[in-house]
Simulated scan of single mutants.
Amino acid sequence: MALLYVRDKETSRPVQELANRRNLTKTAAVRLALTNELEHYQPRQFAMEITDEFHRMSTLRSDPSVMIDKAFYDPLNDEEED
Rank of each mutant, 00 (worst) to 15 (best):
E80A: 13
K9T: 11
K70N: 12
F72S: 07
Y73I: 07
P14T: 07
K70G: 07
L4C: 06
D52L: 03
L18G: 00
S58I: 04
A28W: 08
D82Q: 13
V30K: 00
P75H: 06
E79Y: 03
R21T: 07
R56W: 02
P14M: 08
E39K: 03
P14C: 10
Y73P: 01
D78I: 14
L34R: 04
K26L: 04
L32M: 14
R56D: 04
F72G: 05
A47P: 02
P75T: 03
V15F: 00
A19H: 01
L18E: 01
P14D: 09
V15H: 01
V6N: 03
D78A: 14
E10V: 08
T59Q: 14
M1I: 14
D8W: 09
L18Q: 01
D63I: 02
Q42T: 12
A71Q: 07
N23H: 07
D63Q: 05
E49R: 02
S12W: 05
R7Q: 15
E17P: 01
E81P: 00
L3T: 11
R44L: 09
D82W: 05
F54T: 15
H40T: 09
M57H: 07
A28I: 11
F72E: 05
A28F: 10
L4T: 05
Q42N: 09
R13C: 10
L34H: 02
A2M: 12
N77V: 06
D69R: 07
A71T: 08
L4D: 06
Y73N: 04
T51M: 15
D69N: 13
M48V: 14
D8T: 15
F54W: 13
A19C: 09
E49T: 11
V30F: 00
K70P: 00
A33N: 02
N23Q: 08
S65D: 13
E79D: 08
D69P: 00
T27I: 14
T27D: 07
V15I: 09
R22F: 08
A2R: 07
V15Q: 01
R21P: 02
M67E: 15
P64Q: 09
L18W: 00
A28H: 13
N77G: 03
S65G: 11
E53D: 14
E37C: 14
K26W: 00
N36Y: 07
V30A: 02
D82S: 14
E39R: 02
R21G: 06
M1L: 15
D69A: 13
D74C: 13
E17N: 15
Q16Y: 01
S58K: 07
T25W: 09
P64A: 09
Q42F: 05
P14N: 09
L60G: 11
S62F: 10
Y73M: 09
T11E: 12
P64F: 03
Q16W: 01
R21Q: 11
A19D: 01
E80I: 12
E10K: 11
T59S: 15
N23I: 06
R44D: 08
D69Y: 05
T11Y: 03
E79P: 01
I50K: 05
K26Y: 02
A71H: 06
V6Q: 03
D52Y: 00
D74R: 12
E37D: 11
